[in-house]
Design a protein around this nucleic acid. Structure first.
Lengths: 206, 206
DNA sequence: TTGTAATATAATGCA
DNA sequence: TGCATTATATTACT
């Protein structure tokens, strides 16, 4: 039933990047003394001017949701339904501009059990439309690893070929290689760190 | 990410593979060593070529490396020295710190495919040092987004002002707007694609 | 809990 | 500048 998409990879929208910034509110008064030379002032922008209706800017392409999305979204009369809706817009700035929503979400948090929250979270991610995690077979992994050993940057041609042979989307393969490279890098960083540390400590022992 | 777009065939990828230019840099003033070589040498790919008149063969400007470069990279004028040091993340360079291995690499030169050479190139810029990813604060993003809504092509003056107010490099801001425009475009493309597709499928159901 | 697929986006290089 | 591609940081699922 779930029509698997053809060529496109549809990420984008809806950033979850917020956790990256440790210090919010760091920048102090932005709205002080500003002689602006432009047609608009940064203060006015910062002064929380009205939302410009916020074009949703387009939903991400989620072919794997095609069959169910409208069904699921309309189906649920649960009051929390609105949560995911909010999340279709960029939390980084739409969420803030609606204190009421924010408040509501916050209140919800303390009245629900961990399990319930977890379930919400899951639903949320469904609404948001994360691609179901692909489970590679052992064989697929093996082939990919072998190719990776020889070439960690396979071009589109190789990826297509792999896709055909392994019966996977080319997209999955691309992502796999991306993650694989990241993993390699991570492990090298770690061993390097260990080496340096060992050198350091042993030099201390002399 | 991938986002191959609706093109699907991704011809540009292939193009990129074949269009690999021997010259990695275009830093102003470094164009003189056009060695008129028909193809790239591994040396040039690896950045090992001799420099003329003491000018670095065209190093990208990497101010963020200043603090550590001498420590981590060693003297830039000895390319053989800088390589192993940065191998903390690069598998290829472990091998290359060994002269014997290196020799082998040179011998293999003619056997490298374009794709492989490209990959070297990538590794090169990698060990040369990529700017650490900037993590914008929530506030910074908010401001940037607001400005973007009004003007997605801010001129240098606005960018400078933003830079001052947000305590960011003007460069970062420039890049941010570039990426933001790309994101907008992408989302437009995607929603358009979705629309077309939906129209198509619903017309099938009649 | 860990490993990793998926996502979002900052940075890079070329045309 | 756009564009394609990459690295990187993070999220979330099994």
């Amino acid at each position: 039933m779930l029509a698997e998409g053809e060529g496109m990879a549809g990420p984008s929208l809806c950033a979850a990047n917020t956790a990256a910034s440790p210090d919010l509110r760091k920048a102090p008064g932005f709205g002080e003394n500003k002689a602006t030379q432009c047609s608009f002032s940064i203060e006015s922008i910062l002064g929380l001017e009205q939302k410009k209706d916020g074009i949703p800017a387009g939903k991400p392409y989620r072919p794997w949701m095609d069959a169910c999305s409208s069904l699921v979204l309309g189906d649920d009369s649960d009051p929390h339904q609105q949560i995911p809706v909010v999340c279709y817009e960029n939390p980084l700035f739409h969420a803030r501009s609606d204190p009421v929503q924010e408040e509501k979400v916050f209140k919800c948090e303390k009245y629900f059990s961990v399990a319930e929250r977890l379930s919400f979270k899951r639903e949320l991610s469904w609404y948001r439309g994360r691609r179901p995690r692909t489970a590679f077979t052992r064989n697929q992994i093996e082939v990919l690893e072998n190719v990776f050993k020889m070439n960690s940057y396979p071009g589109i041609d190789i990826r297509e070929e792999l896709a055909r042979k392994l019966e996977l989307d080319e997209d999955r393969i691309q992502i796999w290689f991306q993650n694989r490279r990241a993993k390699l890098k991570r492990s090298h960083r770690e061993s390097q760190f260990l080496m340096v540390k060992n050198t350091f400590t042993s030099s201390l022992l002399e």
